[in-house]
Design a protein around this nucleic acid. Structure first.
Lengths: 206, 206, 206, 206
DNA sequence: AATGAATGAGTCTTCATTCAT
DNA sequence: AATGAATGAAGACTCATTCAT
């Protein structure tokens, strides 16, 4: 399936992946039929099999693009002068932005990963990257004495990842009614608090 | 469906629900065929429709029992003398215990709720009860001056619910490797910390 | 697929096998579609799969009946007083009769066995039984001194089996133009001759 | 199809026929897809139809070459001094050699001729040539008084053709376990015997 | 009530064949 | 001539649902 394609072939393949994205978002994974994808792409039924072997395979393509885009959004780091609370807020804002731009697709992956083992791995991998990063921060901050030394870093990182990611899921994929700025400030504040950081200056002057 | 059943009928209906629980747990919702349920129950194919109209309906029955049992587990309240941190730890432990005893089924509901709108409501309702309770606590504790007054209670409650429930999901349904006591103490401590409660006494004497 | 069937089920199954026989004979194995069989049987498309898993399986059933019937035809033995030439002629006549009554089906098995390994075995098994019997006769007759002692019995038996079975195939399945009595007398005579038996009395008096 | 080809075109056409031979031998007629042939030939999918209209047509080409080669092998005649038994043995040896060198293809034709009427004719034609020749011999030898005069020549020739050709089929295409020299001597001896020729000198001296 | 056979709509998938480049 | 993408008809197969007993 990864054969050398002509330009035309590559175009059709793209068209199918795009169409799949649209249809998956509209109907979910299970209710999407191959026919729906080719219809959306404006191709013949059989053309699907020129490029993909299964719904799973094209779903993988769709998700891999989503991942690419999210990774891009998440990779703008802060300079060296930022404070820990600034870093936390920055990371939270990035995560929320990334999630927001792809909420439908992330929710979709959530759905599929609970059904198809293959995608459970994809999802866990993403989470692993996210938690590994904050686990390192926690260890560093514990060494620096600014985070509660009794929290087991791996557990704490997982708990915080759950807090943020599942909040976003409930909010953006399950239609929770929240206001973006307040979400970011609250999650950031709770994240820092949870780690036992010294209280922030009040955001309310006076 | 299900009204005016003879004793025999009621027995068969129970048998089907029990069988459905077993099969759903084993195969997941999607891969469960009506046939699998009747086979597991030892009844004939067609008997299913005497009692249920669809897979969704019997799934609802299965889940409603799970809910009953979980509600029972969750309803042992603490006496009036307990401290906030004790209450938090107690609630956390209860939640973990409840989740643990029904992990498969909770994960199943998670899965199905992401697929079938009808069950999204069921799941949200459960979550709503959980968050409403802790939202009330937060308001009370804010009034008592022991919780960060700047946290919007509804947001904070949702965030904490996400932290605990999703942690349990990752741990118990997605095979995370964690140790129960450490989970409970860490989640409890982070919960209290996140709300800005005064630092707990160190668990390490001295 | 060999589950306990109700009388009704058994009847339907028979109906399908009968229909399959008709359709296979009419269209050959390859050009027979499952749909053709169910249409011939007057059942719904899906009913086929209640009883069989594949075209191969139902073909096996059809063939196994043919085998049963042929075995029956072939099993009338001659009494102990018959001469070797009488035995040969009797066997030849039986073979021709059996083949004739099932020519279509035998040709069909010929066809399928050249395509599907599973049925190659079935066909070879039938041939093995046939050759084994005549190999034993040859050995006995060689011991009695009435058959050319230099013929290797296994080879000779195979050659004679080929002569008779393939002649019948060409005649009855490939539309050769031959007259039955002359076929039987010629094949019998050649069979005996080939084994080096003493010349028969001429059938032409004088 | 196939007329007025440039040199380049002729080359491609050859390449396709060669490839078809390889693929047919490997996969049989039915399991050979047009795609397999073009892939084996290293040409594009669509090129096939520049030269052939169907799988049947290219199969015909393949077979016609096989026939050419076999005819060549079979056409070395014996000088005028050879005895009848020598002629029979020579013919048998030639047939076995020819069959052996093309066993796969002959078996293939056997297979296809039982499926596609068009090739039934091809196969019968080959057989007809073979039987016609031996029918003529039989008539001659009957006139010369060295062959059983009561055997109907057409029937006898057909029976002998069946004996030899089907033996070879079982041996070389269906994996029978026989030793070449013994096959040739046995078939030759039985052929002569079957015709009622005077007993050969024993091959065992003394 | 229970049974299990019957049904057929809905999908997937293959592959010969056509067609634009 | 060559290419390989595009097409869609044809068939296989599943399974929820109905129905006769």
């Amino acid at each position: 399936m990864g054969r050398n394609l002509t330009a035309r072939g590559e175009r059709t393949r793209q068209r199918l992946i795009d169409a799949a994205g649209v249809v998956f978002a509209r109907q979910g994974f299970i209710d999407t039929k191959i026919t729906d994808i080719t219809a959306e792409a404006g191709s013949a039924n059989g053309s699907f099999y020129t490029y993909f072997e299964s719904k799973e395979e094209i779903f993988g393509e769709v998700i891999s693009r989503v991942n690419d885009q999210m990774r891009e959004t998440l990779d703008h780091r802060l300079g060296p002068d930022a404070s820990p609370r600034e870093r936390i807020e920055h990371a939270t804002r990035q995560y929320v932005d990334a999630y927001k731009s792809q909420a439908m697709m992330v929710a979709l992956l959530e759905q599929v990963s609970s059904i198809i083992p293959e995608f459970r791995e994809v999802r866990l991998e993403t989470r692993r990257k996210f938690t590994a990063r904050s686990e390192r921060s926690i260890r560093r901050w514990q060494a620096e004495g600014i985070v509660d030394p009794e929290l087991p870093p791996r557990y704490a990182a997982a708990a915080l990842a759950s807090m943020v990611s599942n909040f976003c899921y409930m909010w953006l994929a399950m239609d929770g009614d929240y206001e973006e700025d307040l979400v970011i400030s609250t999650l950031s504040r709770m994240w820092a608090n949870a780690l036992g950081m010294a209280p922030a200056e009040s955001t309310h002057p006076g």
